[in-house]
């Protein structure tokens, strides 16, 4: 019990600064701009509901929680990490609320989620488990690498397929979380390749932004194609 309370007490930088909190809000805004540019051919769809501010905040809390729990360096370690299933549920909460407010399964949702799930299952098979912390670690075999990176690519393709325009802060945070999950295999590859080349302590500061930029470029390309 004391260990849990201690961990919660020490988690405030994760919740307020990085990888959740202010950093996530800023990055989510930037990503939303980038994704709108990538999807320029179709105008952003209107919000399904005119909702009060409190409801939007409630929708934004699950993605913010998932973002705060991402296993990203150089954030302070948190001993109770989540896995892909919990991450997808938390990050997909705003989209689920929008889907529930609609009249049924919109076209594009099933293929999008199919790609997301296939990507998630492949990443899990490659990494030997679906914990997020595993996805950022190098697998032992070439097949593991292929599954992990291929799964990450499918995940990003699924995210691009599901994207239907800039739909508010909760959805922006969800998109950012999805992108970070797709970034984890790239981060594993960069860390494996650059582990011996970078000075001690630099990897944590340089590799996550580099991996995120690569994943964002891939997502932008997938948005153009989809």
């Amino acid at each position: 019990m004391g260990e849990l309370l201690g961990a919660l007490g020490l988690a405030w930088p994760r919740l307020l600064i990085y990888p959740g909190g202010m950093f996530a809000l800023g990055l989510a805004w930037l990503l939303a701009r980038w994704m709108v540019m990538g999807k320029r051919s179709s105008p952003p769809a209107p919000l399904p509901l005119r909702r009060e501010r409190e409801v939007v905040i409630i929708d934004a809390l699950p993605p913010l929680l998932a973002l705060a729990l991402l296993p990203l360096p150089p954030a302070r370690g948190f001993p109770y990490g989540i896995d892909l299933v919990a991450a997808l549920a938390l990050l997909g909460w705003p989209r689920l609320r929008a889907l529930a407010a609609g009249s049924g399964l919109a076209s594009g949702v099933l293929p999008g989620y199919g790609l997301l799930l296939l990507g998630g299952a492949l990443m899990g098979a490659g990494a030997g488990g679906v914990e997020l912390s595993r996805l950022g670690r190098a697998p032992d075999t070439a097949l593991g690498w292929a599954l992990l990176l291929g799964g990450g690519g499918l995940w990003l393709a699924g995210q691009a397929r599901l994207y239907d325009g800039d739909r508010g802060w909760a959805r922006r945070l969800g998109e950012l979380g999805h992108l970070w999950v797709g970034t984890l295999p790239i981060l594993a590859a960069l860390a494996a390749g650059a582990a011996d080349r970078l000075p001690t302590g630099w990897a944590g500061w340089t590799l996550p932004p580099l991996a995120l930029i690569m994943a964002a470029l891939a997502l932008g390309a997938a948005l153009r194609v989809s």
Binding site: A60, I82, E131
Partner: peptide, 23 residues
């Protein structure tokens, strides 16, 4: 006996309470 999936329900609930309070 290696962990392959994790669901820290209590830790998530604790963090969610803190986040909700901040919000």
């Amino acid at each position: 006996r290696q962990p392959v999936a994790s669901l820290p329900t209590l830790a998530m609930a604790g963090l969610m309470i803190i986040l909700a309070a901040i919000a």
